[in-house]
Protein backbone atom coordinates (compact mmCIF):
# COMPACT_ATOMS: atom_id res chain seq x y z
CA UNK A 1 0.00 0.00 0.00
CA UNK A 2 2.80 2.34 0.95
CA UNK A 3 6.28 1.95 -0.48
CA UNK A 4 9.05 4.32 0.48
CA UNK A 5 12.55 3.90 -0.88
CA UNK A 6 15.47 5.86 0.44
CA UNK A 7 13.78 9.27 0.69
CA UNK A 8 15.62 12.40 1.70
CA UNK A 9 14.35 15.88 2.41
CA UNK A 10 16.45 18.86 3.37
CA UNK A 11 15.33 22.35 4.26
CA UNK A 12 17.39 25.50 4.12
CA UNK A 13 16.85 27.60 7.17
CA UNK A 14 17.89 31.21 7.17
CA UNK A 15 18.81 32.64 10.50
CA UNK A 16 19.45 36.29 11.10
CA UNK A 17 22.94 36.91 12.34
CA UNK A 18 23.11 40.64 11.86
CA UNK A 19 21.06 43.53 10.63
CA UNK A 20 21.17 42.33 7.07
CA UNK A 21 23.33 39.31 7.25
CA UNK A 22 21.73 35.93 7.23
CA UNK A 23 23.23 32.54 7.59
CA UNK A 24 21.89 29.60 5.65
CA UNK A 25 21.94 26.25 7.30
CA UNK A 26 20.76 23.02 5.82
CA UNK A 27 18.60 20.80 7.98
CA UNK A 28 18.17 17.19 7.03
CA UNK A 29 14.61 16.52 8.10
CA UNK A 30 14.48 13.09 6.52
CA UNK A 31 17.72 11.38 5.76
CA UNK A 32 17.33 8.09 3.96
CA UNK A 33 14.16 6.31 5.04
CA UNK A 34 12.80 3.13 3.45
CA UNK A 35 9.82 1.04 4.48
CA UNK A 36 6.79 -0.72 3.08
CA UNK A 37 3.34 -1.03 4.58
CA UNK A 38 1.18 -3.92 3.45
CA UNK A 39 -2.62 -3.64 2.98
CA UNK A 40 -4.50 -3.91 6.25
CA UNK A 41 -1.53 -3.13 8.47
CA UNK A 42 -1.80 -0.78 11.44
CA UNK A 43 1.57 0.89 11.84
CA UNK A 44 2.66 3.27 14.57
CA UNK A 45 5.15 5.93 13.61
CA UNK A 46 7.01 7.35 16.57
CA UNK A 47 9.71 9.86 17.13
CA UNK A 48 10.65 12.86 19.21
CA UNK A 49 9.71 16.37 18.06
CA UNK A 50 11.63 17.43 15.00
CA UNK A 51 12.62 13.88 14.11
CA UNK A 52 10.99 14.06 10.68
CA UNK A 53 7.61 12.44 11.34
CA UNK A 54 5.48 15.20 9.91
CA UNK A 55 7.83 15.68 6.98
CA UNK A 56 7.44 12.00 6.13
CA UNK A 57 3.65 12.28 6.37
CA UNK A 58 3.71 15.32 4.09
CA UNK A 59 5.73 13.42 1.52
CA UNK A 60 3.33 10.47 1.73
CA UNK A 61 0.34 12.73 1.14
CA UNK A 62 1.91 14.76 -1.66
CA UNK A 63 2.12 18.07 0.22
CA UNK A 64 5.90 18.00 -0.12
CA UNK A 65 7.98 16.27 -2.73
CA UNK A 66 10.96 14.21 -1.60
CA UNK A 67 14.38 15.66 -2.42
CA UNK A 68 15.47 12.23 -3.58
CA UNK A 69 14.16 8.70 -3.38
CA UNK A 70 10.76 7.39 -4.40
CA UNK A 71 7.39 7.22 -2.71
CA UNK A 72 4.44 5.11 -3.85
CA UNK A 73 1.15 5.29 -2.05
CA UNK A 74 -1.74 3.21 -3.43
CA UNK A 75 0.41 2.80 -6.53
CA UNK A 76 0.73 6.55 -7.11
CA UNK A 77 3.58 9.03 -6.81
CA UNK A 78 2.06 11.42 -4.25
CA UNK A 79 3.70 14.69 -5.28
CA UNK A 80 2.90 14.18 -8.98
CA UNK A 81 -0.57 12.70 -8.57
CA UNK A 82 -1.65 14.58 -5.47
CA UNK A 83 -5.30 15.02 -6.38
CA UNK A 84 -5.71 11.46 -7.65
CA UNK A 85 -4.17 10.19 -4.44
CA UNK A 86 -6.43 12.37 -2.32
CA UNK A 87 -9.40 10.21 -3.32
CA UNK A 88 -7.73 7.07 -2.05
CA UNK A 89 -6.37 8.39 1.18
CA UNK A 90 -7.83 9.92 4.31
CA UNK A 91 -5.72 12.34 6.32
CA UNK A 92 -6.26 13.63 9.84
CA UNK A 93 -4.06 16.33 11.34
CA UNK A 94 -4.52 16.35 15.10
CA UNK A 95 -3.20 19.89 15.39
CA UNK A 96 -5.58 21.47 12.91
CA UNK A 97 -9.02 20.70 11.71
CA UNK A 98 -10.09 20.03 8.14
CA UNK A 99 -13.58 21.20 9.05
CA UNK A 100 -14.86 24.75 8.61
CA UNK A 101 -15.09 26.73 11.84
CA UNK A 102 -18.28 28.59 11.06
CA UNK A 103 -20.27 25.77 9.53
CA UNK A 104 -22.28 23.20 11.46
CA UNK A 105 -20.58 19.81 11.36
CA UNK A 106 -23.27 18.45 9.04
CA UNK A 107 -22.62 21.24 6.48
CA UNK A 108 -18.87 20.70 6.74
CA UNK A 109 -19.41 17.06 5.90
CA UNK A 110 -21.67 18.03 2.99
CA UNK A 111 -18.89 20.24 1.64
CA UNK A 112 -16.50 17.32 1.96
CA UNK A 113 -18.96 15.20 0.02
CA UNK A 114 -18.85 17.71 -2.85
CA UNK A 115 -15.07 18.00 -2.71
CA UNK A 116 -14.68 14.24 -2.98
CA UNK A 117 -17.69 13.84 -5.28
CA UNK A 118 -19.28 11.16 -3.19
CA UNK A 119 -22.60 10.13 -4.65
CA UNK A 120 -25.54 11.32 -2.49
CA UNK A 121 -26.89 7.88 -1.60
CA UNK A 122 -23.49 6.50 -0.70
CA UNK A 123 -22.83 9.60 1.38
CA UNK A 124 -26.05 9.18 3.33
CA UNK A 125 -25.26 5.55 4.15
CA UNK A 126 -21.67 6.30 5.08
CA UNK A 127 -22.63 9.30 7.19
CA UNK A 128 -25.23 7.27 9.08
CA UNK A 129 -22.64 4.59 9.74
CA UNK A 130 -19.97 7.04 10.92
CA UNK A 131 -22.51 8.97 12.98
CA UNK A 132 -23.32 5.80 14.84
CA UNK A 133 -19.74 4.61 15.30
CA UNK A 134 -18.42 7.99 16.42
CA UNK A 135 -21.60 9.09 18.16
CA UNK A 136 -21.78 12.32 16.16
CA UNK A 137 -25.56 12.62 16.50
CA UNK A 138 -25.70 15.06 19.42
CA UNK A 139 -23.53 17.70 17.72
CA UNK A 140 -24.12 17.32 13.97
CA UNK A 141 -25.92 20.68 13.90
CA UNK A 142 -23.40 22.52 16.08
CA UNK A 143 -20.95 24.92 14.41
CA UNK A 144 -17.49 23.40 14.50
CA UNK A 145 -16.03 26.27 16.53
CA UNK A 146 -18.35 25.35 19.43
CA UNK A 147 -17.29 21.70 19.53
CA UNK A 148 -15.04 20.35 22.24
CA UNK A 149 -11.67 19.05 21.10
CA UNK A 150 -12.85 15.46 21.43
CA UNK A 151 -16.00 16.12 19.42
CA UNK A 152 -14.03 17.97 16.79
CA UNK A 153 -11.59 15.13 16.44
CA UNK A 154 -14.47 12.70 15.94
CA UNK A 155 -15.81 15.06 13.28
CA UNK A 156 -12.41 15.15 11.63
CA UNK A 157 -12.22 11.37 11.62
CA UNK A 158 -15.63 11.21 9.96
CA UNK A 159 -14.50 13.81 7.39
CA UNK A 160 -11.39 11.79 6.57
CA UNK A 161 -13.33 8.56 6.09
CA UNK A 162 -16.46 9.78 4.29
CA UNK A 163 -15.03 8.82 0.91
CA UNK A 164 -14.10 5.40 2.25
CA UNK A 165 -10.36 5.50 1.51
CA UNK A 166 -8.30 2.30 1.68
CA UNK A 167 -5.51 4.19 3.46
CA UNK A 168 -5.80 6.41 6.51
CA UNK A 169 -2.93 8.59 7.68
CA UNK A 170 -3.22 10.14 11.13
CA UNK A 171 -0.86 12.79 12.46
CA UNK A 172 -1.20 12.87 16.25
CA UNK A 173 -4.96 12.26 16.36
CA UNK A 174 -5.16 11.95 20.13
CA UNK A 175 -3.15 15.04 21.02
CA UNK A 176 -4.77 16.95 23.84
CA UNK A 177 -7.72 14.59 24.22
CA UNK A 178 -9.05 13.41 27.59
CA UNK A 179 -9.04 9.75 28.55
CA UNK A 180 -12.60 9.06 27.44
CA UNK A 181 -12.19 10.72 24.04
CA UNK A 182 -8.92 8.91 23.52
CA UNK A 183 -10.62 5.61 24.21
CA UNK A 184 -13.42 6.44 21.74
CA UNK A 185 -10.93 7.39 19.03
CA UNK A 186 -8.79 4.31 19.62
CA UNK A 187 -11.77 1.97 19.65
CA UNK A 188 -13.00 3.51 16.41
CA UNK A 189 -9.64 3.20 14.68
CA UNK A 190 -9.37 -0.40 15.73
CA UNK A 191 -12.75 -1.17 14.18
CA UNK A 192 -11.92 0.65 10.97
CA UNK A 193 -8.75 -1.38 10.70
CA UNK A 194 -10.20 -4.78 11.49
CA UNK A 195 -13.66 -4.46 9.93
CA UNK A 196 -12.96 -2.46 6.79
CA UNK A 197 -9.36 -3.58 6.38
CA UNK A 198 -8.21 0.04 6.12
CA UNK A 199 -4.44 0.42 6.16
CA UNK A 200 -3.55 2.86 8.91
CA UNK A 201 -0.38 4.82 9.57
CA UNK A 202 -0.48 6.65 12.87
CA UNK A 203 2.04 9.13 14.21
CA UNK A 204 1.78 9.92 17.86
CA UNK A 205 3.55 10.95 21.02
CA UNK A 206 1.06 9.00 23.04
CA UNK A 207 2.57 5.59 23.54
CA UNK A 208 -0.77 4.38 24.84
CA UNK A 209 -2.06 4.66 21.26
CA UNK A 210 0.74 2.42 20.06
CA UNK A 211 0.37 -0.19 22.78
CA UNK A 212 -3.34 -0.38 22.25
CA UNK A 213 -3.45 -0.36 18.46
CA UNK A 214 -0.27 -1.10 16.59
CA UNK A 215 1.30 -4.44 15.98
CA UNK A 216 4.13 -2.81 14.14
CA UNK A 217 6.14 0.22 15.20
CA UNK A 218 8.54 2.41 13.29
CA UNK A 219 10.71 4.78 15.22
CA UNK A 220 12.37 7.72 13.55
CA UNK A 221 15.13 9.78 15.05
CA UNK A 222 17.26 12.46 13.38
CA UNK A 223 15.64 11.71 10.05
CA UNK A 224 16.50 8.02 10.07
CA UNK A 225 14.58 4.90 10.99
CA UNK A 226 15.88 3.70 14.33
CA UNK A 227 13.54 0.75 14.55
CA UNK A 228 11.03 -1.05 12.38
CA UNK A 229 9.39 -4.17 13.72
CA UNK A 230 6.85 -5.42 16.19
CA UNK A 231 6.37 -4.04 19.63
CA UNK A 232 7.42 -7.06 21.70
CA UNK A 233 10.69 -7.44 19.90
CA UNK A 234 11.38 -3.76 20.43
CA UNK A 235 10.98 -4.27 24.16
CA UNK A 236 13.29 -7.24 24.09
CA UNK A 237 15.84 -5.64 21.80
CA UNK A 238 16.21 -2.53 23.87
CA UNK A 239 16.40 -4.81 26.93
CA UNK A 240 14.67 -2.44 29.28
CA UNK A 241 14.67 -3.69 32.84
CA UNK A 242 11.58 -5.06 34.51
CA UNK A 243 10.37 -3.82 37.84
CA UNK A 244 9.41 -6.08 40.71
CA UNK A 245 6.99 -4.50 43.17
CA UNK A 246 7.22 -6.24 46.54
CA UNK A 247 4.91 -5.73 49.52
CA UNK A 248 6.70 -6.86 52.67
CA UNK A 249 4.72 -7.76 55.75
CA UNK A 250 6.08 -4.74 57.58
CA UNK A 251 8.18 -1.69 56.72
CA UNK A 252 11.84 -2.61 56.35
CA UNK A 253 15.10 -1.11 55.11
CA UNK A 254 15.79 -1.67 51.38
CA UNK A 255 16.26 -5.36 50.61
CA UNK A 256 19.68 -6.58 49.52
CA UNK A 257 19.94 -8.94 46.62
CA UNK A 258 22.80 -9.37 44.17
CA UNK A 259 22.17 -7.62 40.82
CA UNK A 260 18.94 -6.01 41.94
CA UNK A 261 18.65 -2.30 42.63
CA UNK A 262 16.00 -0.90 44.96
CA UNK A 263 14.52 2.16 43.29
CA UNK A 264 11.95 3.31 45.79
CA UNK A 265 10.71 2.46 49.24
CA UNK A 266 7.29 3.46 50.52
CA UNK A 267 6.40 1.89 53.83
CA UNK A 268 6.28 -1.84 53.35
CA UNK A 269 6.30 -1.52 49.55
CA UNK A 270 9.55 -1.58 47.59
CA UNK A 271 10.30 -1.24 43.88
CA UNK A 272 13.17 -3.41 42.64
CA UNK A 273 14.76 -3.03 39.22
CA UNK A 274 15.48 -6.44 37.74
CA UNK A 275 17.87 -6.45 34.78
CA UNK A 276 16.48 -8.13 31.64
CA UNK A 277 19.12 -10.90 31.72
CA UNK A 278 18.19 -12.04 35.23
CA UNK A 279 15.62 -14.74 35.77
CA UNK A 280 12.64 -13.11 37.51
CA UNK A 281 11.49 -16.37 39.08
CA UNK A 282 14.91 -16.88 40.67
CA UNK A 283 14.84 -13.37 42.06
CA UNK A 284 11.38 -13.90 43.56
CA UNK A 285 12.47 -17.21 45.10
CA UNK A 286 15.61 -15.68 46.61
CA UNK A 287 13.59 -12.84 47.97
CA UNK A 288 10.93 -15.07 49.53
CA UNK A 289 13.69 -17.06 51.22
CA UNK A 290 15.01 -14.08 53.11
CA UNK A 291 12.06 -11.72 53.62
CA UNK A 292 8.46 -12.12 54.75
CA UNK A 293 6.45 -11.19 51.65
CA UNK A 294 2.75 -10.25 51.59
CA UNK A 295 2.36 -9.66 47.87
CA UNK A 296 4.41 -9.41 44.70
CA UNK A 297 3.94 -8.05 41.14
CA UNK A 298 6.21 -8.01 38.09
CA UNK A 299 5.87 -5.06 35.72
CA UNK A 300 6.97 -5.20 32.11
CA UNK A 301 8.68 -1.99 31.07
CA UNK A 302 6.28 0.59 29.64
CA UNK A 303 6.89 1.55 26.10
CA UNK A 304 7.77 5.04 27.33
CA UNK A 305 10.80 3.59 28.94
CA UNK A 306 11.72 1.53 25.92
CA UNK A 307 11.54 4.51 23.65
CA UNK A 308 13.36 6.89 25.97
CA UNK A 309 16.11 4.39 26.14
CA UNK A 310 16.22 4.06 22.41
CA UNK A 311 16.35 7.83 21.90
CA UNK A 312 18.96 8.24 24.61
CA UNK A 313 21.28 5.57 23.32
CA UNK A 314 20.84 6.99 19.83
CA UNK A 315 21.44 3.44 18.76
CA UNK A 316 19.88 1.56 15.94
CA UNK A 317 18.02 -1.60 16.63
CA UNK A 318 17.45 -4.24 14.06
CA UNK A 319 14.47 -6.42 14.51
Amino acid sequence: MIEVTDIHKTFTVRTRTGRLRRRRTTVRAVDGISFTVAPGEFVGYLGPNGAGKSTTIKMLTGILSPGSGTVRVAGLDPSRRRTALARRIGVVFGQRTTLWWDLPLRDSLTLIRHLYRVEAGAHRRRLAELTELLDLGPFLSTPVRQLSLGQRMRGDLAAALLHDPPILVLDEPTIGLDVVSKATVRGFLERVNTERGTTILLTTHDLGDIERLCRRVMIIDHGRLAYDGDLDRLRAAVAADRVLVVDLERPAPPVRLAGVVVERVEGPRQWLRVPREMNAAAVVAALADRYPIADIALREPGIEEVVTRLYRDGGRVTA
Binding site: T61, G62, I63, R82, A86, I89, V91, F93, R96
Partner: peptide, 8 residues
Protein backbone atom coordinates in the same frame (compact mmCIF):
# COMPACT_ATOMS: atom_id res chain seq x y z
CA UNK B 1 -1.97 21.52 4.07
CA UNK B 2 -5.51 20.41 4.73
CA UNK B 3 -6.54 21.80 1.34
CA UNK B 4 -3.68 20.02 -0.39
CA UNK B 5 -4.86 16.60 0.79
CA UNK B 6 -8.23 17.08 -0.89
CA UNK B 7 -8.84 16.12 -4.50
CA UNK B 8 -9.61 19.69 -5.58
Amino acid sequence: DTMLVRPV
